[in-house]
Design a protein around this nucleic acid. Structure first.
Length: 436
DNA sequence: CAACTAATAT
DNA sequence: CATATTAGTT
C-alpha cells in the first residue's frame, strides 16, 4: 500500500524516492534539510507550519513515508504534531531540535518519535533515515505473521527483534515471508536496548550497483580512487563508505588476480606485460610495460611505466590469434549493458544462480541465461558499440608488438610478482580479455 | 581525526 | 563466497 519504491524489485533503488515531509518554522533549516535530503534521493516536501503539515499529511495520506519535524514551532507543539501523526497516519516521525536535553529527547520518544536528531544535522544522519520506514514495515509484516501463527518465527514473545540471521535488505523478501532456518540458534542477547533493533542490512551488490561503482571508479582513475570518492560519486544515499571500501577491496583483488594471470601468460621469454588503463580522457589504453623499465612500481603512486597506446590511434592489423576474448558483449543502446563475462578462473561455472537479490524479490524469474546473476567485474559503460571491436584490434596490435619486442630484446630478468601492486590495469572497460 | 586498506570475521 | 568489521596506517 505504498507508492514508494519500498517493495520495488530493485533493492538498490529502495531508499530513493521515499517521501519525506519536513516541518520546521525556520526557513533556513527547511531549505538546508531539503537540499540534503534531496541529495540523498528522497522525495522532499517542506512546510513551516505544523498545521499545514498535518493538512498535507491528511490530504496525501500515501504520499509520505516519514516526517521530520522540529520540536519548537509557533503554531503547534512539535510533540503535538508528533502525536497526531503517529495516531492518524502512523508514519515514523523524526524530531529535530537544537536542544539535546535528555528530558526533551525523552519526551520525543515518549510521544512516539522514532528518532531525535540534534540540530546541526548532517547528511550522514539523514542518509539512513529510511531505516525507520523500513523498520516500521518489518514490524508490520511481523505482526501479520505472528497473527497468522507462523511457527518458529517469533521466538521470545513479540518483541521486536529480527529473526536472528535474516538480514534482508529488500522488503519484498520479508514480506514474502521467507524465513531463514534459524533453528535452535543461540539467542544472543545483544543490544536490544531500544524497541528497535534491526540487523543491519547487508548490501547486495547488484549489477546496477556495481555499474555505478565502476562508473565512479573510472571517473577518477583506478589508482586514485578511494572509497569516499566512489561513494560520493555513486550517489546512493544509503550506501556507506565501508560498504564501498569492502567492495573496492574485492574489486581490486579481482583485478590483481586478473593481472597476475596476464603476467604469467605474457611473461614468456621476454617480459612484457600489458595493462589496460585509461588516460585522463577516459579512453582505454593499453599499456605495455616492459620490465626493462625496472619498476613495476611499488607504491600507490601511479608510476605509469611503459608506453600508452591510445586505442584510437592504433592502426588496426587484425590478428586474432592466441588471444581469446572471454566474452564481449557490446552494449546495444537499449540492451543490457552488462557484459556477461565468465570468470576467467573457472572453466565451467554454474553458479547457483540468482542467489542474490533477484531470486527473492518476488519476480521469481526463471533462470534464463539472459539474466545475469553475477556481474562481471567488467566495465559496463557503454561507450560506443564499435568500441569492442576497436578494443580487440588494439589488443591484437599490442600482442604483435609484444611478440616483436620480446624477440628483439635481450633482457630477461625475473618476473618478480609484486603482490599488491595497484597500478594494475584497470580491466574495467568493456571486456575481459584473456590471453590463452 | 578522517580516510584508507589489509586482515580478519561472519 | 560476498560482505562486514576491525585494526593499524597515513
Amino acid at each position: 500500500m505504498e507508492t514508494t519504491g519500498f517493495s520495488s524489485p530493485r533493492p538498490d533503488a529502495f531508499p530513493a524516492g521515499l517521501g519525506v515531509l519536513v516541518v520546521d518554522d525556520d526557513r533556513i533549516w527547511l531549505k538546508i534539510l531539503e537540499k540534503m535530503l534531496k541529495k540523498c534521493s528522497y522525495e522532499v516536501t517542506t512546510c513551516n507550519l505544523a498545521r499545514e503539515a498535518l493538512d498535507l499529511l491528511r490530504e496525501r495520506k500515501d504520499g509520505f513515508d516519514i516526517v521530520i519535524s522540529d520540536v519548537n514551532m509557533p503554531d503547534m507543539d512539535g510533540f503535538k504534531l508528533l502525536e497526531h501523526v503517529g495516531l492518524e497516519m502512523d508514519l515514523p516521525v523524526i524530531m529535530t531540535s537544537v536542544d539535546g536535553e535528555t528530558s526533551m529527547v525523552m519526551k520525543g520518544v515518549q510521544h512516539g518519535a522514532c528518532d531525535y536528531l540534534l540540530k546541526p544535522i548532517r547528511m550522514k544522519e539523514l542518509r539512513n533515515i529510511w531505516q525507520h520506514v523500513f523498520r516500521k514495515r518489518i514490524q508490520e509484516v511481523k505482526d501479520i505473521e505472528s497473527h497468522e501463527g507462523l511457527e518458529e518465527i517469533q521466538m521470545m514473545g513479540n518483541s521486536m527483534e529480527q529473526s536472528d540471521d535474516g538480514y534482508l535488505f529488500c522488503g519484498a523478501d520479508l514480506i514474502s515471508g521467507k524465513k531463514r532456518k534459524d533453528a535452535d540458534n543461540k539467542q544472543d542477547d545483544r543490544h536490544y536496548g531500544d524497541p528497535y533493533y534491526v540487523k543491519k542490512a547487508r548490501v547486495v551488490w547488484t549489477v546496477e550497483l556495481h555499474q555505478k561503482f565502476v562508473k565512479a571508479v573510472n571517473q577518477f582513475g583506478f589508482d586514485k580512487v578511494g572509497p569516499k570518492k566512489i561513494l560520493d560519486s555513486m550517489g546512493v544515499p544509503w550506501l556507506t563508505r565501508e560498504n564501498v571500501a569492502s567492495h573496492l577491496q574485492k574489486y581490486r583483488l579481482y583485478l590483481s588476480r586478473l593481472q597476475k594471470e596476464n603476467k604469467l601468460k605474457a611473461s614468456f621469454g621476454g617480459m612484457k606485460q600489458w595493462d589496460i588503463s585509461k588516460d585522463t580522457a577516459g579512453n582505454v589504453c593499453l599499456q605495455i610495460s616492459s620490465n626493462a623499465s625496472r619498476n613495476i612500481v611499488t607504491n600507490g603512486s601511479s608510476g605509469i611505466c611503459g608506453s600508452k597506446v591510445p586505442i584510437k590511434n592504433v592502426d588496426s592489423k587484425i590478428c586474432v590469434e592466441d588471444m581469446k576474448i572471454a566474452s564481449v558483449q557490446m552494449a546495444e543502446p537499449k540492451e543490457a549493458l552488462i557484459g556477461d563475462i565468465t570468470d576467467p578462473q573457472k572453466s565451467s561455472n554454474s553458479r547457483t544462480g540468482l542467489n542474490h537479490s533477484f531470486g527473492q524479490i518476488g519476480l521469481d524469474v526463471k533462470y534464463e541465461p539472459k539474466i545475469l546473476t553475477q556481474y562481471s567485474w567488467t566495465e559496463v559503460q557503454p561507450v560506443h558499440r564499435n568500441f569492442g571491436v576497436i578494443f580487440i584490434f588494439g589488443c591484437c596490435v599490442v600482442l604483435v608488438v609484444m611478440v616483436q619486442v620480446a624477440m628483439t630484446t635481450t633482457t630477461s630478468p625475473p618476473p618478480s610478482p609484486s603482490p599488491l601492486n595497484r597500478n594494475l590495469e584497470d580491466a574495467t572497460n568493456v571486456a575481459v580479455i584473456e590471453l590463452s
